[in-house]
Design a protein around this nucleic acid. Structure first.
Lengths: 112, 112
DNA sequence: CGGATATTCTACCAATCGGTTGAATAATAA
DNA sequence: TTATTATTCAACCGATTGGTAGAATATCCG
């Protein structure tokens, strides 16, 4: 019985549904970065990046440490682990049933 | 060097960011269901469910087989596997770096 | 045929999203 | 103090989203 309702899960999947935000997370995996330096790496405005960061923060994927006028961002892996766990659990759950179905219902017609 | 840009990934994560759609997928794991029967399980209108299904279809997570006036829906696990793979890869990638950072930068202050 | 059923399509609405620009705030540097 | 730098906040814009309701289409049933 996989859980399907979780605000945190909504936020995490919503956050990583954006390629820009996935790229931000990847950039952050290299270590702490401040917003300005991060923004310079992307083809959108500083403010746009600032907004994306806030989305990631809300999802718990990024934390912020204010040091003077600079805000240093840091990756938080825990919610990502949760998300991975949910997907993995679902995958196993589905695969079992799907494999059984594939065998039974041989109509296929080139899926997709 | 994890890939971060992929339309398919965007669609899959976007699709599963909605609890209703996650619930639909879970419902579909039990076997093929037609749209009407599926819709009856949810507290939103038939049309709303029909739309959600279309989103899942666009993401490749659901396929449709029209049989007379009924449309039978079936789970497609492959894109889900992709999504799980991406997350798993990222998780490993990040964990390694984060663990190293955690040891170095001991400021913590109760994460989350 | 005519009516009921299953479904999509179209149109609409309010809310959110991703982006912009400009103003406000706060910290550093001169 | 004044200027510069780093950042958020506020307002705006057009596109998308999640929902609704109603019309259109196609199938099944009497």
């Amino acid at each position: 019985m996989p859980r399907t309702r979780s605000r945190r899960l909504d936020q995490v999947y919503g956050a990583i549904a954006s390629p820009t935000r996935r790229a931000i997370l990847t950039a952050l995996a290299g270590g702490e970065v401040n917003v300005g330096r991060l923004a310079r790496r992307f083809p959108v405005s500083f403010n746009a990046v600032s907004k994306h960061v806030k989305v990631l923060e809300r999802a718990g994927l990024v934390s912020r440490r204010v040091r003077g006028r600079e805000h240093w961002l840091r990756l938080r892996a825990e919610p990502l682990r949760e998300a991975a766990r949910w997907l993995a659990r679902q995958r196993v759950f589905w695969d079992a049933r799907l494999d059984a179905l594939e065998v039974l219902l041989r109509d296929d017609a080139g899926g997709r």
